[in-house]
Nucleic acid binder design. Structure first.
Ligand SMILES: [Zn+2]
Ligand SMILES: [Zn+2]
Ligand SMILES: [Zn+2]
Ligand SMILES: [Zn+2]
Lengths: 142, 142
DNA sequence: TTATTAAATGATAACATTTTTCATATAGAG
DNA sequence: CTCTATATGAAAAATGTTATCATTTAATAA
């Protein structure tokens, strides 16, 4: 399933620095929250969790955007349409979300090349990428 | 490509009534806006367009939600992550969106069954459905 | 280690989006 | 036409997001 190792804090720091960004205690705290919640969290949830530590919402927004840009977070949809952010250990991948318990699982097996070619031929589009989410029931809820 | 005929107003009215909802001039106006904009619109765009006709934003929100629930509107993502709603003429389909001109095309060819089975086997999930969007360049922008 | 400096922080305000409220209007049924 | 539950719009309230800016601090290099 092509899973990548868990990311060490030092590696994450290097990734931030490589992009010209600083790795601050606040950013570390945001990352820890996501690591501790593999099924993902909405921005408002993270904000609430980190409020007691006096981490401002602006910092939460900024950090989540940075982690997204670096590919460490992906989003999936709540039933409400709200975006929930989930740690991703893989470059390109898809998320499976349980509609009952909201469990999220990443799946990096992806061969849409045949479908992309078919669609390109039919529509004349140059297909550059895609976003794919699966909904269903996790093993426990099945 | 399994496209369904354009929906007549009377059919749409029946669909509303079937669901126990009423078909009002406001709801018709919202639908016309979407029909006239095949590449889709965000909620705020619809709100602005219908403001001169004194159609309130609450009505726009309520109507878009209803049309979504009935399957006549699907959403795709702006670069901003904002949702843009697009008329769907097909039960299950995917959208292709041009990253340059935002042109949206529906594509109802979809065989993800092999991939879904593979993922089901690997993860133990019961896969019930998916949301798939393609990004790229339309013929004009290629 | 320390000095330097550009980037990050958080409080607040500004702005934007979405939902609720409720008095009034009206679609649809009979 | 009458009746009634539903829908409407205006406004307010609630939520969500971004911008501002004085202050702090991470990273770099001496
Ligand atoms: Zn979305
Ligand atoms: Zn579950
Ligand atoms: Zn993929
Ligand atoms: Zn285009």
């Amino acid at each position: 399933m092509n899973t990548i190792e868990a990311l060490s804090m030092e590696e994450l720091r290097r990734q931030f620095n490589r992009t010209g960004l600083r790795f601050t205690p606040q950013r570390e705290a945001v990352w820890r929250i996501f690591e501790g919640n593999p099924d993902g969290l909405t921005i408002s949830q993270v904000t609430v969790i980190l409020a007691p530590q006096k981490i401002g919402q602006a910092t939460v927004y900024r950090t989540i955007r940075a982690l997204q840009d670096m590919g460490y977070l992906k989003w999936v949809h709540e039933q409400t349409g709200e975006h929930r952010f989930v740690v991703s250990r893989s470059g390109h991948s898809h998320m499976l979300v349980c509609r009952v318990c909201s469990k999220a699982v990443e799946c990096s097996d992806c061969d849409l090349s045949v479908l992309e070619k078919l669609i390109a031929r039919q529509t004349g589009f140059t297909v550059e990428g895609h976003h794919l989410e699966f909904f269903g029931l996790c093993p426990d809820c099945s």
